Amino acid sequence: MNPGFQTATDEPAGWDNAGQIRCEPAWSGYRVILVGEVDLTLADRWEPVFAMLADADPADVTIDLSAATFIDSSVLGAFVRLHRTVSGRGGETTLTGADGPVARTISLAGIDRVIPMVPVSET
């Protein structure tokens, strides 16, 4: 079930590298995992993943931020665009695992009022 972009199962190592994005099948759609510092300089990596997820079936997308140490406003904008597309076709976008500076960035921007944030145990 590889929609044409790198998944966690395609690459056996490197989960602790900074500035990475992974995507893998999940029970109701896809799980996107952001690792390390993810910002505009990495848009060439995350924009294609988010664009493909906008058209992917099944519909739901969970964004796992438990390994992210930093995200900037460009990433938040991508989250909102993805959320609008996914919800427009009847799916659900969920954020999970955010804490520390990442959770604060999401909260300050008000993204948590637009995209549901749930504990990792619920995803």
Rank of each mutant, 00 (worst) to 15 (best):
E11L: 14
L40K: 10
W27L: 07
L108C: 01
Q6Y: 11
V118D: 02
D57L: 05
G14P: 12
V49P: 09
A67H: 13
V49D: 11
A8Q: 15
G90E: 03
V102I: 13
V102T: 12
T69E: 01
D72L: 01
E24F: 00
D16A: 13
L76V: 06
T123A: 01
G4K: 10
V120L: 13
I33T: 14
V49I: 15
V118K: 05
A98R: 02
P3Q: 08
D72W: 02
F5P: 01
A8S: 13
G77W: 05
G97Q: 10
W15N: 15
W46M: 07
T7P: 01
S87D: 13
G36I: 06
D10E: 14
A103C: 03
I21R: 03
G14R: 13
V120A: 12
G91Q: 07
S107I: 10
G91W: 04
E122L: 09
T94Y: 03
A109N: 12
V49T: 11
P3D: 03
D55N: 11
T62G: 09
V32C: 08
A8L: 15
P48C: 08
V102S: 02
E11W: 13
S28F: 15
L82R: 04
L95Q: 00
L95F: 05
N17G: 14
I63K: 04
S107H: 11
A98Q: 00
A8P: 08
A103P: 01
G36D: 03
V114G: 03
P25R: 11
P119G: 06
L53D: 07
E24Y: 06
A54G: 10
D10F: 15
R22Q: 10
I111G: 09
R45I: 04
